[in-house]
C-alpha cells in the first residue's frame, strides 16, 4: 500500500524520463526496493525506467562498462575472478538479502548515495565514470556527480586499478557497517574513501607511498568529523576504527 501514488508514467526514452522528474514528487523507478520500503507520502508519480536501462556487464579492451539496470544480484553472479574489483562482495554487504538484490539495480544503489553502502563507497574509491542523462548527456566522475539526472551506465578504466582494499566494522556481519574504509591502490597513490554511519563520505588521496603515521592520522581525523557519537560509540571511537582500518590497508599494500 503506497497511498500517495496517483500516477505511473512509462516514458519512451531516458531523456523523456528526465524531463518528467520533479524531485521528491515525481521520481524515477527502476528496482524500487528503496522507494517501496520508504513509501514517501510526498511522492505522487512513479516514472518507470527499468525498461530503458541497459543491464549488461561488458569488458571492452581495458574498459569495464556496467549498465545501471543490472541488479545487485547480477553483480554477485558475474565472474570477477581475474579482477581486483570487489563488486560482488560489496553488493552482498550492501544488501544482505538475495531477494532484494534481485530487485535492486546498480543505478538505484548509486542514486541513493548511501554512506553505509559498501558498493557505493567502493565505486567512489574506484572513481568510476558515470554516463548521466540530464539536461544534456555527459560522462563524469562519480566523485563530481551532484545526484542530478539519470545514470545510464558506469565505466571503469581497469588500467587505473592495481589493487583494492576494504576494512569494514559492524556489530554483526549482516548489520550496516559503523565504519567502512575503502582503499584503491594505483601506481601513484592510494585513494581512500571512508563511509559507514557518516553524514557524508570522506575522500583522501595518499601520495606518499611510505604511508607516514601522521598522514594516516590526519586522514582519520578528517574523516571522523563526518561521524557523531551514537549507539555504536563515540566519535573518538569511530576515528579509532578509521585509523585501524587504514593501518590494516597499509599493511596489505
Amino acid at each position: 500500500m503506497w497511498t500517495s501514488i496517483k500516477h505511473f508514467e512509462k516514458p519512451a526514452s531516458l531523456e523523456e524520463a528526465y524531463t518528467l522528474i520533479v524531485p521528491g514528487k515525481k521520481v524515477p523507478f527502476s528496482g524500487g526496493s528503496y522507494l517501496t520500503a520508504e513509501q514517501s507520502g510526498e511522492i505522487d508519480t512513479l516514472i518507470a525506467i527499468r525498461h530503458l536501462l541497459d543491464d549488461r556487464i561488458k569488458m571492452n579492451g581495458k574498459i569495464l562498462t556496467i549498465g545501471t539496470g543490472a541488479t545487485l544480484q547480477s553483480l554477485v553472479k558475474y565472474d570477477w575472478s581475474r579482477s581486483p574489483l570487489r563488486l560482488a562482495e560489496c553488493a552482498c554487504l550492501s544488501c544482505p538479502s538475495r531477494n532484494i538484490r534481485n530487485q535492486r539495480t546498480l543505478g538505484g544503489e548509486i542514486g541513493r548515495q548511501r554512506t553505509n553502502s559498501e558498493l557505493f563507497v567502493h565505486l567512489k574509491a574506484l572513481d568510476v565514470n558515470l554516463e548521466v542523462i540530464g539536461a544534456s548527456s555527459q560522462t563524469m566522475s562519480i566523485r563530481e556527480w551532484d545526484g542530478q539526472g539519470i545514470i545510464n551506465a558506469l565505466r571503469i578504466d581497469m588500467t587505473a586499478v592495481k589493487k583494492t582494499f576494504c576494512q569494514r566494522f559492524a556489530l554483526i556481519p549482516s548489520a550496516p557497517a559503523v565504519v567502512i574504509v575503502e582503499g584503491v591502490l594505483n601506481k601513484q597513490r592510494l585513494d581512500v574513501v571512508v563511509g559507514g554511519a557518516a553524514s557524508v563520505l570522506s575522500l583522501s588521496s595518499i601520495t606518499d607511498m611510505g604511508f607516514p603515521e601522521e598522514t594516516l592520522a590526519q586522514v582519520a581525523a578528517q574523516a571522523a568529523v563526518r561521524f557523531k557519537t551514537d549507539q555504536y560509540g563515540s566519535r573518538a571511537y569511530k576515528e579509532h576504527l578509521i585509523r585501524t582500518g587504514l593501518a590494516r590497508i597499509v599493511a596489505e599494500c
Binding site: P96, L171, I172, P173, S174, A175, P176, Q231
Partner: peptide, 16 residues
Amino acid sequence: PINTDFTGYHIYTAAD
C-alpha cells in the same frame, strides 16, 4: 524511538 526497523535494530540472521 530511533531504531524502528531491521536496518537500525540488528537481529541475528542466518549470515551471522
